[in-house]
């Protein structure tokens, strides 16, 4: 399981509802150590504690995918994961994609094909695309629509242009 091998993290732990937990998380290549309440969601940890505001809160119920990040190599909805679950994990957000001032090819493609209208859902779509292409480098349109991107919603309904960059 990809969850293991997270060396150094406490295998057992018990903290009360009023206590905080010290967690260590590698985000976009940098290790951060912070104290969090057990109930803190990963999305709030990334936005509020680390200032990574590309991770959007959309529906907050696990439907829309605006909060999608890569955790230990797989895409997750960070509003459905506790920060304490990410203790020892490696996380990639949109902020970690561009290198040396150069956009990631997926970002380039989204730009090129105008795959956004208001842009709110875009970070989530890009991170889900990143995961989809890591699993399946040449997805068919059916695989993109039915499988890959079915967990991300665009309320501007610009899906045609969001599928385009992947083709």
């Amino acid at each position: 399981m990809r969850f293991r091998g997270d060396g150094g993290m406490a295998a057992t732990l018990k903290v009360g509802p009023e206590e905080k937990v010290r967690i260590r998380v590698k985000v976009n290549g940098v290790w951060y150590e912070r104290e969090v309440e057990p109930r803190k969601l990963l999305v709030h940890f990334l936005r509020e504690d680390l200032g990574l505001t590309s991770v959007h809160v959309g529906c907050d119920t696990g439907h829309c995918g605006a909060c999608t990040v890569i955790m230990n190599g797989v895409s997750v909805k960070s509003c459905q994961v506790l920060a304490v679950q990410a203790d020892g994990a490696e996380i990639l957000t949109l902020e970690g994609l561009a290198k040396d001032g150069k956009l990631h090819p997926i970002q380039e493609a989204f730009w090129e094909k105008h795959a956004l209208q208001c842009g709110y859902c875009t970070p989530g779509f890009i991170m889900e695309t990143y995961w989809l292409l890591s699993e399946n480098p040449n997805p068919t349109e059916e695989e993109i629509r039915r499988g890959g991107l079915s967990g991300n919603l665009c309320r501007c309904t610009g899906y045609q242009n969001i599928i385009e960059p992947l083709n």
Partner: peptide
Amino acid sequence: MYPPKFGYVRVA
């Protein structure tokens, strides 16, 4: 939305 407060136990 925030979950209510709860404690956390990690078991082996």
